[in-house]
Nucleic acid binder design. Structure first.
Lengths: 245, 245
DNA sequence: CGCATCGTTGATCAAGCTCAAGCCGCGTGG
DNA sequence: CCACGCGGCTTGAGCTTGATCAACGATGCG
């Protein structure tokens, strides 16, 4: 951990978490921040450890996952730059309910529990922003929960890909949209299915020219088609009238 | 909507949401509150409406559910007295992402969006408490998501019952623990399965003397056994060595 | 009494999980 | 530079869980 150099203040101010704060407040916040580097395949924290720190991710990709007694993993979220790690849990001093692993080399700002609470009590705006970010995550999780309850595997995988493209590349990138450092296993753990099923689905989509599949990467050619797959409701024998309603 | 009578201030102050606030702050909050009554089978709000109001539930049971394009419902949470409704969404002025229906006659305090944001900016403590409550819900949802991903139906139903007993009756009640106003359909929508499967499971449990099943109610006799069912990992043919590890 | 809502149970069937076997590509060390 | 091994991926065969459909029973309410 090294003290944050001045040049970083710029970057800090751009984060959604700090929207609407005054110069002075930003300065205080920045003074209490430390910069951490977390190399690929190592952990920000493990499930069960005391939640002492929260992070604002500057560079890299982070996988938030929970593991159950049987050893099965579930991916709750993938984070990218600008996202906030462990805001929720750091307020109540419960243990981390899940683990955060760097999928690529990461750089993040870190604050500890006490300063976090203190800062929020000083500037309500910070608490409100935090709540807002939690809200977004909450909505996403709610939707994924509904999908897991009601949709078939193929649809869920399609949605997962769409979601990843939106949040990772922030849209702008050219077709074919790339998804890197993403294993079939990851996709399976995101959608509540198995490695095997994901593999079959990807193969089938590749044959249809929908995407190009590679080791730890996919390149999506026809996003629109994925969308129609995701929204396609057909609990019925092949060749069904599109739906009477 | 009627102005809140003074006698209610007592009750207000007990809510976890208002923990650690000063007398003065409580008074302000109370002044902006209105009391609403929502009869059984009617809605606090519907999915898709603009989120204008948030609620603190005083009496009754509320079902938070989301409905998908196909018309399938999913129950995200059941609320009881002291719980907070729609805190998350009222900050961002997005539409309600789900519907809230009274399963029994309800009484609740209500605040509108503007006053909520205003109050939180005034007393950070309120924002922090709100975040804390959201955090709890978030953790629950995360766990249910993992369960839905990794566990079999029977386990999920067992867990759902356990959870309901804890949060409804707050423990203290005598065996047999009662669960009222709870249909098989509700249980199915909570656990991501069908009415039929839940019915079969309940029948089987009843035969084993684990509980007593009735119309819209269950009386749990052996909570402990439910726990062992919930934790029972056996992805293997009957009569399997308990697990070597 | 009749209707609506809720619940039960059997028969059937398919989606997707599991297991097994083998391929491919890459990085490491001999 | 090659070979080896590991991590990731593919594909087939078989099987299980739990969904679906259908018919009927029970309960309560107006």
């Amino acid at each position: 951990m090294t003290p944050t150099p001045d040049s970083d203040l710029q970057l800090l101010t751009q984060a959604a978490l700090f929207d609407g704060l005054t110069e002075a407040q930003l300065h205080t916040i920045q003074q209490h921040a430390t910069l951490v580097r977390v190399p690929r395949r190592t952990f920000f924290f493990h499930q069960g450890e005391a939640a002492t720190t929260f992070y604002l991710l500057r560079e890299g990709q982070v996988r938030l996952s929970q593991i159950n007694p049987e050893g099965k993993q579930v991916i709750i979220h993938l984070f990218g730059p600008g996202d906030v790690l462990a805001v929720i849990v750091v307020l109540s001093n419960a243990p981390y309910p899940l683990s955060a692993e760097a999928i690529t080399d990461c750089v993040a700002w870190a604050w500890n529990r006490e300063t976090a609470v203190h800062l929020m009590e000083q500037c309500p705006r910070l608490a409100i922003n935090g709540m807002d970010m939690v809200a977004g995550r909450f909505l996403e999780l709610q939707n994924r929960y509904r999908e897991l309850s009601t949709e078939r595997v193929e649809q869920r995988v399609a949605r997962a890909l769409i979601r990843l493209i939106h949040q990772r590349n922030g849209y702008q990138e050219q077709k074919p949209y790339p998804l890197l450092s993403l294993t079939r296993q990851d996709l399976a753990e995101m959608t509540g299915t198995t490695l095997y099923t994901v593999s079959r689905i990807c193969s089938s989509w590749e044959q249809q020219g929908l995407l190009e599949a590679g080791r730890e990467q996919l390149h999506i050619h026809k996003l629109e088609e994925l969308t129609t797959i995701a929204d396609d409701l057909r609990p019925s024998p092949p060749n069904f009238p599109p739906r009477p309603n």
